[in-house]
Every structure is written in C-alpha cells, then in structure tokens.
Amino acid sequence: MSERKNWQEVELGAQLPAATSLGYKTGGWRVLRPIFDPSACTHCMICVTYCPDMAIPVAKSEQGVAGKGGRVYKGVVRLATNLDYCKGCGICAHECPSKAITMMREEEAEQASCKL
C-alpha cells in the first residue's frame, strides 16, 4: 500500500469516494485459472452474470465476434477474463453450457502462456 495518511489528512468520518477497490487486485488469490476458448463461446452471458468478481468484461460489438460453430455473435459479447480480479472460483467453467472455459492450475497456465 502507498504512503499512509496522517491523522490530519484522513477523510471526515472515514467517508470514501466510489469504487476505490479497483485498486485492490484479487487475482493473486487464484489457484486455478479459467482458460477461455472463444471459438466455443455463444456469448450467452451466463458466466458474466454469475461471476461474483465482475472479472469477465463485456463489450457491445456491432460487427460481432466469432464464436461457437464459426458463427458471428453480435451485441453484448464477453471478452477475455480480467485476471487482475479473477479469484479462480471456477463457477464460470462449471456453469458454461458450451464448455468454453476450463480451469487450469495457475503454474501450468503461467508456463503455457510463457511458451506461447
């Protein structure tokens, strides 16, 4: 954590501005990493809405993205998992109806990504 404030500097009544926890990265808790296979995804949003850590970002895509069955999925699409915050719970992998997510041990995932 950065320099801590002195008593003369702390906020009145410990009141905080919004959304400061974005500065607290929980990705380090992860033991298993969700590996997302875009080619198997139908962008159904099950994993997004279930993710308790808001770690699966979404975007609106007019031209669409390629997914399961080589189809192009338009509208709200899921992007790559945000590993800064993903805690590796595995809910997304367990609930994905298209089996587009698999959980891999963090060290293996690291090694795999190094090789790439």
């Binding site: 801590r4 404030k5 002195n6 008593w7 003369q8 702390v10 009145l12 009544g13 410990a14 009141q15 905080l16 501005p17 919004a18 959304a19």
Partner: peptide, 22 residues
C-alpha cells in the same frame, strides 16, 4: 458517489479517533 461507514482496521482507526478529538 461515496461510501460512508467503512470497516477501518488497526492501520487507520487511531488516526480517525485523533481527528475526532481535534
């Protein structure tokens, strides 16, 4: 937008109480 009444741990509680005394 603000959050009022957060959990304050030993790293900061003392400072808030000193400000209150001031």
């Amino acid at each position: 937008v603000r959050s009022v009444g957060p959990l304050v741990l030993p790293d900061y509680l003392f400072e808030f109480k000193r400000a209150q005394e001031e």
